[in-house]
Simulated assay, not measured.
Amino acid sequence: MTDTSRGLPERPMSPHLQVWRWHITMACSILHRACVVGLYAGAVLLALWALALASGHDSYALYTSVMGSLLGKLVLLGLTFALFFNIAYAIRQTFWDAGIGFAPKTADLTGATAIAFAVVATAVTWVIAAATGAL
Rank of each mutant, 00 (worst) to 15 (best):
L51Y: 12
A43K: 04
V75W: 10
F81E: 01
I115L: 13
R21P: 02
A134H: 05
Y40P: 00
L48A: 14
L74Y: 01
R33Y: 07
R6D: 05
A34F: 10
K105D: 10
G111F: 04
R92N: 14
K73S: 03
V44K: 13
F84E: 00
V37G: 06
L62Q: 10
F95W: 14
W126I: 11
L135F: 15
A34N: 12
N86F: 02
G133Q: 05
T94I: 07
G42Y: 08
F117Q: 03
A134T: 12
E10Y: 05
F84H: 08
A103P: 00
W49D: 12
P104W: 11
P12C: 00
A98W: 15
T4S: 06
I87V: 14
G38R: 06
A52R: 01
A50E: 07
R21M: 09
H57R: 15
S65F: 03
R33D: 11
H16A: 13
T110C: 06
A129S: 13
D58V: 03
T110A: 09
V19W: 07
T106Y: 02
Y60L: 15
K105F: 11
A131D: 09
E10V: 15
P104A: 07
A27K: 11
S65A: 14
I24Y: 03
V44D: 11
L39S: 01
L135M: 13
W96C: 02
A107C: 08
P15G: 07
L79W: 02
L62H: 09
F84G: 01
S59Q: 08
V75K: 03
I91W: 05
R21A: 14
M13T: 07
M1G: 14
L109N: 09
G7I: 07
A121G: 01
L39H: 04
T94Q: 09
A103V: 01
A52I: 10
T2K: 13
V37N: 03
L48N: 07
G7H: 04
A134P: 00
T25Q: 06
T106G: 00
L79N: 02
W22D: 10
G68D: 10
A129P: 00
M26F: 05
S29D: 15
A98K: 15
S55W: 11
P15F: 13
V120K: 06
C35R: 01
M13K: 12
F95Y: 14
G42L: 01
L71T: 11
H57Y: 11
M26T: 15
L45G: 10
I128L: 14
G99I: 03
N86H: 13
G111L: 09
A50Y: 11
G133Y: 07
T64V: 12
Y63W: 15
S69P: 05
M67H: 05
F102Q: 06
A129V: 00
G38A: 11
H32M: 01
A130Q: 12
L71I: 14
W20H: 10
S29Y: 08
I24M: 12
L135N: 10
D3V: 05
V120R: 01
G133H: 12
L45H: 12
A114L: 05
T64A: 06
F84A: 00
L79Q: 04
R11M: 13
L77S: 12
K73A: 03
G42M: 09
A118M: 02
T106I: 14
I100F: 13
A27N: 08
G68R: 02
Y63T: 02
T122G: 07
A134I: 08
T64D: 05
L31D: 06
T2L: 09
W22G: 02
I100S: 01
D97V: 03
H57E: 14
